[in-house]
Design a binder for these strands. Sequence first.
DNA 1: CCAAAAGTGTTATATTTACACCCATGC
DNA 2: GCATGGGTGTAAATATAACACTTTTGG
Lengths: 241, 241
Amino acid sequence: MVSGSVQNINTWLNQIQTDFKAAVSVDCVIFGYDNDALKILLSRCDMPPYEHDLSLLGDLVHPDETTDEAARRVLVNKTGFTDVFLEQVQVFSDIKRHPLGRVITIAYYSLIKIDEDHLEHIGKSGLWEWKNVNEIQSLAFDHYNIMHTCLDKLKKQLREQPIGFNLLPVKFSLLQLQRLYEVILQVQLDKRNFRRKLKSLGILKELDEIETSVSHRPARLYTFDTKVYEKKKIAGFAFDL
Amino acid sequence: MVSGSVQNINTWLNQIQTDFKAAVSVDCVIFGYDNDALKILLSRCDMPPYEHDLSLLGDLVHPDETTDEAARRVLVNKTGFTDVFLEQVQVFSDIKRHPLGRVITIAYYSLIKIDEDHLEHIGKSGLWEWKNVNEIQSLAFDHYNIMHTCLDKLKKQLREQPIGFNLLPVKFSLLQLQRLYEVILQVQLDKRNFRRKLKSLGILKELDEIETSVSHRPARLYTFDTKVYEKKKIAGFAFDL
DNA sequence: CCAAAAGTGTTATATTTACACCCATGC
DNA sequence: GCATGGGTGTAAATATAACACTTTTGG
């Protein structure tokens, strides 16, 4: 047995070059938010025995890229976006998780502004579809498990950092933002306390614009002040809701 | 190019079986706490060009184990402990990170009660050594980087969960615990507020024992109440210090 | 004028911070 | 008896939580 003794360079070389290799993939849980629902971008799986299931978007990690780069590549190819929120979550390495052999996968989660034009087209292309998180009962491989791990991480980060903006249009109302938190965290929030809290963080920029074509008093629109945020992030701040 | 189009099963099979494979390893940042200092267990590296550097403890992931199992195997082999705190941190996959070829590594961090007898022996065996975190200037491979990522994660978790106990003897005084937080988080804490906070969490069990052989008034000893903790963890609790 | 969401302050409660002295023990 | 850390409480400041009504718009 190798371990327990000092590592030997020849042992390593042997192992690296022979059977101690595995295929490594990335799988992206791409979250979008639309119609007061949290959604995930999924694709039809064409691999037995999962031909009739949906699966996460992923690919093998190429020899010339890091896993982060691979995840970003998958995202860019599938959504067209280059500048999106993307975060590494966890490794999934059960020996039997993939039917074709040992494939170790790194899970990532990503936040997308779903309402952009071409993203709707993607949804209509038939290759991929947006599915409500609540309505997903099962997925191919261990992807259902991966999805839930990423969802838990999203919830945690949402409480710690103001990342919710990444799921909304550039301009949004405070109620939209509140609903987003309520839907994802599955809590109910007080309108006045929520607004006070957010304004006190100083990362919202009030715009001179208001909602249009709503059949009630239009709400003021806000945008996310990236510059202030970056400054604050370094100091570190909590975001307890 | 594969990605962008629907995944094809034959492409996958080809890639998995040929050049799209990588060696996968685990590297453990094993933290211990002794003499008011945070330490890490390191080993001498015997691989060029790092022959004169220290490195983290790690090994290749075997074909019949998950990465979590591999990390635990490394820990058990090196420290003898089976029931230790062990947490996956992050993947490191720079293409040139390993001199022998592509090796993707999964970083873990672990918390050890350093004061157990056989652990001191380990430290004296010459194969491994405990080194103060503050005194580490560089490590082999990208291990210095890995170490700092794990240290950051430790600091974060220490603020969110009462994991500090894992670094202390089973029985400890409140001052010991406070010093541990101060050393790791690099803050100064108020003795009374710290005690109030901890007692209010209800995860400390007051023992009928006191310190011995100290040249001042001996402190009451406490132990960590795992059962209460497990119950509370499910509900989720913050631990802001 | 009705429906729907926008917008706005105050009070009570809980949490956090700051702070100083006497106590028990070993030498 | 002196050095060392052990142990304790209170008051002020801050943060959080609960709560209801008027306003603006479209139809």
